[in-house]
Simulated scan of single mutants.
Amino acid sequence: MRLLHVVTLVSDDGAYGGPTSVATGQLEECAARGHEVTLLSLWRGRSPAPERVGSVPLRTRPARSLLPGRFTGLMHPLLVRDLWRAMGSADVVHIHAGRDLVSLAALAVAALRRKNFLAQTHGMVEPRRRAVVRLFDRLYVPLLRRARGCLVLTERERRAVAEVIGPDGPPLLKLPNGVRPERADGATSSRRAPEVLFLARLHPRKRPDAFVEMAALVHRKMPDARFSLYGADEGALPRVRHLIAAHGLQGVVTYGGALQHSDAVRAYARAAVYVLPSTDEPFGMTLIEAMSAGTPVLCTQSCGIAEELASRGAAVVTDGSPRAMADAVCDLLADEHKRAALVKAGHRAVEEVFSIHTVADRLEGIYRNTCSPNSSPIGSSISSSIT
């Protein structure tokens, strides 16, 4: 099959986060299975856009800010022409759709082209009451309803999308994100420095400030521990630096900027614990990446996959307060056997649920149903098979 994925932004700092890495991972696995794949996106970076992301062919236009908003208003006029041409030869169009101009354009072109397309919302489509969102949704929601299916990560996201698109929308199909299972090359917990890792956008919802507050508490009990933050700054870095100075943590807590994927994998692998303090995290892709790298993980109760991970013994789940996170981190750093048990359970969770191989199996089934010439809209048979 000829598969076209559309995502809003690819950048050298990974600013768009999960949707981009998920699209790339899905396409790499589909390409390995013999499908012809293309990723179409805007590009933002200090250098020209690459021709490929990993093994995935990439077609881009430079990102331009046409409207206010971090990603909402990004666009390039010629991207519409690119979408029209690329969709013409595609068997399946897969749109990683947020509330932004690129997603709106992709949905509109797919509808005008009368293409069978899927939408995947990545937790980005939730009920909103602001007037500007309601105005945008007058165009966006009718187009989203024309998808053959809408892929959602969790039951919570399914409810949110259902509220937005109403009863006339497409089937909502649960599909987790997936990573390629990895094994650290002979790494053992005894070799690891006592490093605690934060790797996410420095956005208030990700709560890097709570990570620093947690670090201050851990440092009092375990002064040898070190704490690293990585990720593109999205407004929270000044607060992070203020807290580091206020707690006297210079040299204890460091910020290393955004990382390329290969560098991020190495950061996961050398950390003793990975902490994601986010509230209302739709999924938690970095948790899966850290587990795949063989690192114990800690998240909050409001993370979309917290219940699944906790039931498997694959993560420590707290209420997200700095004190609770600090107590959990101290417990993990002091107990090598507990860390090893988390690593083992994390690998098992990745292999059984969050492996890209498992996700691609499910996705291929949806694609076959979608691109069949006589297919009707995706129904309950596929929905029930992947929930």
Rank of each mutant, 00 (worst) to 15 (best):
M87L: 10
A49C: 02
W84M: 12
A236K: 03
Y274V: 09
P373E: 06
Q260I: 01
D327A: 15
A162F: 01
L202R: 02
Y367T: 07
G379W: 05
R114A: 10
A108C: 01
Y367L: 08
G34E: 07
V196G: 11
Q301T: 15
R207I: 00
R158Q: 10
D327M: 09
I95Q: 03
R129Q: 12
C303D: 11
A187C: 13
V53P: 02
A272T: 09
T300K: 07
M214N: 06
H94D: 14
T279I: 07
V179A: 11
T188E: 14
G346A: 01
D335A: 03
L9H: 04
S292N: 05
L298T: 03
F211K: 11
V37K: 09
C371A: 14
G178C: 06
V275N: 07
V317T: 09
G235H: 02
L249T: 06
G69A: 02
Q26L: 15
G123N: 04
R180P: 00
A184P: 15
T8Q: 13
E157G: 05
L363N: 06
G379Q: 04
E234L: 14
V80K: 10
R128L: 10
E364S: 07
V196I: 13
R99K: 12
V125C: 01
E234M: 14
P48H: 05
A110L: 04
A293T: 11
R220M: 09
A200G: 06
R241I: 00
H219V: 05
R226S: 13
V212A: 07
V80R: 14
W43C: 00
L143P: 01
P68W: 08
S376M: 13
H337P: 00
P204G: 04
V53A: 11
V133T: 14
D224W: 11
A215M: 10
S262T: 13
L173I: 15
Y255W: 12
S190I: 14
A360Q: 09
R128M: 07
V53E: 12
H347Y: 15
A271V: 01
V253R: 08
R145P: 03
L9M: 05
R323V: 10
A334N: 12
F71I: 02
S228W: 13
T295G: 09
R114I: 02
A345D: 09
D361S: 06
C30V: 12
S383W: 11
L3S: 10
A225F: 11
L79M: 10
V316L: 15
A97K: 04
E28Q: 13
E126R: 13
A215E: 06
A349C: 13
D91H: 13
V273Y: 05
L199V: 10
L202C: 03
I386T: 15
E289R: 01
L66Y: 08
A210D: 13
T286Y: 01
P181F: 04
L112Q: 12
S55R: 14
L249P: 04
H357Q: 15
R270Y: 02
H203W: 06
P176W: 01
P57M: 08
S190C: 09
T295Y: 08
L151M: 09
H242D: 13
D100E: 05
S381D: 15
L42M: 00
P322Q: 11
E182H: 09
A106T: 04
P48Q: 05
H261W: 12
E213W: 00
L332E: 06
G17K: 01
M291P: 10
T300L: 05
G256R: 12
V133P: 00
P277L: 08
P282W: 10
